[in-house]
Protein backbone atom coordinates (compact mmCIF):
# COMPACT_ATOMS: atom_id res chain seq x y z
CA UNK A 1 0.00 0.00 0.00
CA UNK A 2 2.66 2.44 1.02
CA UNK A 3 4.57 1.49 -2.11
CA UNK A 4 1.60 2.36 -4.31
CA UNK A 5 1.12 5.70 -2.58
CA UNK A 6 4.81 6.43 -2.85
CA UNK A 7 4.79 5.67 -6.57
CA UNK A 8 1.68 7.78 -7.01
CA UNK A 9 3.40 10.64 -5.24
CA UNK A 10 6.61 10.29 -7.21
CA UNK A 11 4.91 10.05 -10.60
CA UNK A 12 1.81 12.20 -10.25
CA UNK A 13 1.45 14.45 -7.25
CA UNK A 14 5.00 15.67 -7.03
CA UNK A 15 4.88 17.80 -10.18
CA UNK A 16 2.32 20.58 -10.27
CA UNK A 17 1.55 19.96 -13.94
CA UNK A 18 0.67 16.32 -13.45
CA UNK A 19 -1.07 17.11 -10.16
CA UNK A 20 -3.41 19.57 -11.89
CA UNK A 21 -4.06 17.07 -14.67
CA UNK A 22 -4.81 14.40 -12.08
CA UNK A 23 -7.22 16.75 -10.30
CA UNK A 24 -9.10 17.57 -13.51
CA UNK A 25 -9.23 13.98 -14.66
CA UNK A 26 -10.24 12.82 -11.19
CA UNK A 27 -13.05 15.38 -11.02
CA UNK A 28 -14.31 14.26 -14.42
CA UNK A 29 -14.29 10.59 -13.48
CA UNK A 30 -15.81 11.27 -10.06
CA UNK A 31 -18.66 13.28 -11.59
CA UNK A 32 -19.41 10.51 -14.06
CA UNK A 33 -19.33 7.83 -11.39
CA UNK A 34 -21.36 9.87 -8.93
CA UNK A 35 -24.05 10.63 -11.51
CA UNK A 36 -24.23 7.00 -12.56
CA UNK A 37 -24.66 5.84 -8.98
CA UNK A 38 -27.16 8.53 -7.92
CA UNK A 39 -29.24 8.23 -11.11
CA UNK A 40 -29.22 4.48 -10.62
CA UNK A 41 -30.49 4.86 -7.05
CA UNK A 42 -33.21 7.29 -8.17
CA UNK A 43 -34.34 5.04 -11.01
CA UNK A 44 -34.32 2.05 -8.70
CA UNK A 45 -36.55 3.89 -6.22
CA UNK A 46 -38.94 4.86 -9.02
CA UNK A 47 -38.83 1.65 -11.00
CA UNK A 48 -41.63 1.53 -13.57
CA UNK A 49 -42.83 5.09 -13.03
CA UNK A 50 -40.43 7.16 -15.12
CA UNK A 51 -40.91 7.85 -18.83
CA UNK A 52 -37.69 5.95 -19.47
CA UNK A 53 -39.31 2.79 -18.11
CA UNK A 54 -42.58 3.05 -20.03
CA UNK A 55 -41.68 4.65 -23.35
CA UNK A 56 -40.97 1.37 -25.09
CA UNK A 57 -44.66 0.51 -24.83
CA UNK A 58 -45.71 3.61 -26.80
CA UNK A 59 -43.10 4.26 -29.47
CA UNK A 60 -44.01 1.56 -32.02
CA UNK A 61 -44.63 3.98 -34.92
CA UNK A 62 -41.10 5.28 -35.00
CA UNK A 63 -38.04 3.52 -33.73
CA UNK A 64 -35.21 5.72 -34.98
CA UNK A 65 -36.50 9.19 -34.22
CA UNK A 66 -36.40 9.82 -30.51
CA UNK A 67 -33.52 7.84 -29.15
CA UNK A 68 -31.66 10.70 -27.52
CA UNK A 69 -34.55 12.32 -25.67
CA UNK A 70 -34.46 12.12 -21.90
Amino acid sequence: MAGVIGKLYQNVFRRTSSFVLAAIFGAFMFERGFDMVSDGVFENINQGKLWKHIKHSYGQQEEGGDEEEE
Binding site: W51, G59, Q61, E62, G65, D66, E69
Partner: peptide, 10 residues
Protein backbone atom coordinates in the same frame (compact mmCIF):
# COMPACT_ATOMS: atom_id res chain seq x y z
CA UNK B 1 -45.32 16.40 -23.47
CA UNK B 2 -42.24 15.02 -25.22
CA UNK B 3 -40.24 12.80 -22.94
CA UNK B 4 -42.85 13.08 -20.21
CA UNK B 5 -45.90 11.27 -21.48
CA UNK B 6 -45.53 11.13 -25.27
CA UNK B 7 -42.86 10.46 -27.85
CA UNK B 8 -42.00 13.24 -30.24
CA UNK B 9 -44.09 11.86 -33.11
CA UNK B 10 -47.05 11.24 -30.81
Amino acid sequence: LIGVSHTESE
